[in-house]
Design a binder for these strands. Sequence first.
DNA 1: GGCCCTAACAACGA
DNA 2: CTCGTTGTTAGGGC
Lengths: 261, 261
Amino acid sequence: MPELPDLTVYAENLAKAVVGKQADRVTFHKSGRLNVSEGELAGALAGSRVTAVERTGKQVSFRTDKGAELRVHLMLTGGFALTSAAELPRLDAPVLAITFTDGSALAVTDPKGWATVSLNPAAEAKVPDALQVSAEYLQQLCSKKPKALIKALLIDQALIGGIGNAYVDEILWQARISPKSAAGKLPPEAVASLAKAIPAVLQDAIGELRKRHPDMVSGEYREFLKVHRPDLQKSPTGAPIIKENVSSKRTYYTEEQRLYR
Amino acid sequence: MPELPDLTVYAENLAKAVVGKQADRVTFHKSGRLNVSEGELAGALAGSRVTAVERTGKQVSFRTDKGAELRVHLMLTGGFALTSAAELPRLDAPVLAITFTDGSALAVTDPKGWATVSLNPAAEAKVPDALQVSAEYLQQLCSKKPKALIKALLIDQALIGGIGNAYVDEILWQARISPKSAAGKLPPEAVASLAKAIPAVLQDAIGELRKRHPDMVSGEYREFLKVHRPDLQKSPTGAPIIKENVSSKRTYYTEEQRLYR
DNA sequence: GGCCCTAACAACGA
DNA sequence: CTCGTTGTTAGGGC
């Protein structure tokens, strides 16, 4: 569930909680997915100190003073948990658990077990983060995939990092562009308003989350979204919200959003 | 345009005309597509006698007493021509021309130049010919590609050889099965009636062509088709003919044909 | 709500 | 009316 704003706040809060701490024991539960053996993972982390926690696209990375990087993708149902070594056994659906020498603990949980954990992942082609995309880059993407629906293009993690199915609807509503528009048909003005809406919507959400849920490291909070919400009937400007599948994804939008095609 | 029935009669008539003759000069016009050099082609054929002409799927093969095989695919607009060496220069859109020692000549023509000519083509995975498909084989195909539309499955040359866009509509009407049925949803009875309709429709067409156009080696004759015809309004049993694209192909069918899905 | 793999489908060119 | 190749989409599994 979590998208860029949630993950950004998770990373901030995780950093406050664990940077500087020294890892003690590392355990991985076979329910999850790991790119190395459990022994290799424990060997690379045990005894080292966390130096940073950062978000990259939809993943959260932990770095250590021994140069290791641990990357976590929560997928649909994963979450973090800050607890103590003593309480770890009570945790539901644990995937990864790290205890620190001060007795505190960090865990990744996931009822579905789809979360992925990677130790020192191979460097990938760097995809621009959603908070960094320029109008020029967006224009390039639209020209390169002219027939793709704009919604499908924006949530493609190979093109832009961090936008998921919920916030893309917010962004498109903010820019007043229909999710079913063909990317290649967007005029420059529409691309420009989209380029503006992306960071605006995401930064606003980050602000809301920091204020409303200052300690969050898991879960979704969407009560301030403007259109992507099952309980809403109308957009803030009074237009009825249409609920429909677009590119096989549940989509909320209104007739206020212009369809280019 | 030609499909299995046309090509079958072409091959019969070509066999009557050229088997036993000795090739003299072989010329290939660069407009067409050839799997070897023109010199290689001429070298392999000149001086040898034609021993057989056969249809394989939608292709026509010529065999020689020196063990060569020449395979021709006419694509959309190609055709054969039986003429004389003297008349060859008057031929429109020639692709391949072979003169024989008795002064007669055989040519492949194609205004679009898409026809393909292959000398000793690499042996391919043998695909069952449409005249040979059993109900069991058809059932296997339907089970293996359950989501494919039945029309798309039947004209896939990698699965069954010889059925094209015109005769598939005739076959499906004969079997009273909608072209938009999902292959995997056909009950055994429908598969059985389809297995019966395929050779029935094709053999009937071969008979019609032999009778109506006893010397044909090119062109299309479709005046006896029952549904795949732009000029028809109703099927033989009086149902209005629906004209619609199915899997991006022009399709003629009626409500008499049951939709399984 | 996420991502990957595969199959089916549409568009274009030869 | 043909057959490729390519890009986009839809579905199921993890």
